[in-house]
Amino acid sequence: MSSSETRIKEMVAHKWDLASETFDTHVGHGIRSKKERDAWKRAFREVFPEKGLKILDVGCGTGELSLLFAEMGHKVTGIDISRKMLKTAESKAEACGAEITFREGDAENPPFMTPSFDIVFSRHLLWTLPDPKKAVENWNRVLRKNGKVVIIDGVWDRGTLGDRARRNIGAFLTLLLERKDPRKGHPGYSEELKSRLPHAGGAPLEKVKEYLAASGFEEVRTLNLKEVRQAQKENMPLGERIMRNYQYYLICGRK
């Protein structure tokens, strides 16, 4: 890895270290209700109905979905570039008695030498990566034959005036009605960092399909997460609802 690439990784890790303390308090990150938890489980069972799978959660953050997978009976390993995110994840797993392996690791190049996993899973990650195409290729590398990659992502900011207005109005309403800053816990990326990320505003679905095809994944399909989003909105103040009007998807493919 070049010194420039190392610097970018360090910048990304620092931003998510700062976000770790309040990350789970935000809708869409922490699971806020039993209804939302059940909706996630139904979505995942539709994609991989088998029991006892080995799942690699890349960019696992605070381990919210790692814990959910363990609850569903899977054997989970979570990696993240942020040490503080991992520390939170480990504390949560210990508190509920979940046997999950967490370790520091680069989601673009998971630290595993052989095909080891039935599922490689990522949520809200591709937009943070300098080389998402390389990441998808390496996820294929660590999957066993017939294993699946499962990606949840979206387009948070298309760079339009409409998107900017929506975010500003939503933030103002949250400050006014909820007396809290909706941006607290969301790392603000510098212009230097944004310039190195091909999807700084979010990873478009069609582009992710290209990455999967280029990496040799087959049987690519998408899943509607409408039930999950509806459950999330029930615990969402008005300002948050306005801000969360964007493309959001689950896509998966088989090796």
Rank of each mutant, 00 (worst) to 15 (best):
E5T: 09
T6W: 07
A13N: 10
K15H: 02
D17N: 15
A19V: 02
A19F: 14
H26M: 06
I31K: 02
K35F: 09
W40F: 15
K41W: 06
K41L: 04
F48C: 05
K51S: 07
L56Q: 10
G59C: 06
G61D: 08
G61A: 10
F69T: 01
H74Q: 02
K75H: 07
R83F: 05
S91D: 08
C96A: 02
E99Y: 11
T101W: 04
F102H: 06
E104C: 04
G105A: 07
D106P: 05
A107K: 04
D118Y: 06
I119V: 15
I119T: 06
S122Y: 03
L125G: 06
L125V: 15
L126D: 07
L129M: 10
V136A: 04
E137Q: 14
N138L: 00
R141D: 05
L143A: 11
R144W: 05
K145M: 07
D153E: 14
V155N: 01
G162H: 09
G162K: 13
A165N: 14
R166M: 10
I169T: 09
L177R: 08
L177S: 04
G188V: 08
Y189M: 08
L193I: 12
R196W: 01
H199S: 09
A200Q: 13
P204Q: 11
K207Y: 04
E210D: 14
L212P: 03
S215L: 04
F217R: 03
V220C: 03
T222R: 14
K226E: 13
E227A: 11
V228C: 08
R229G: 00
Q230I: 15
Q232Y: 07
K233D: 15
E234L: 14
Y246H: 11
Q247V: 07
Y248R: 15
C252S: 15
G253Y: 08
G253C: 13
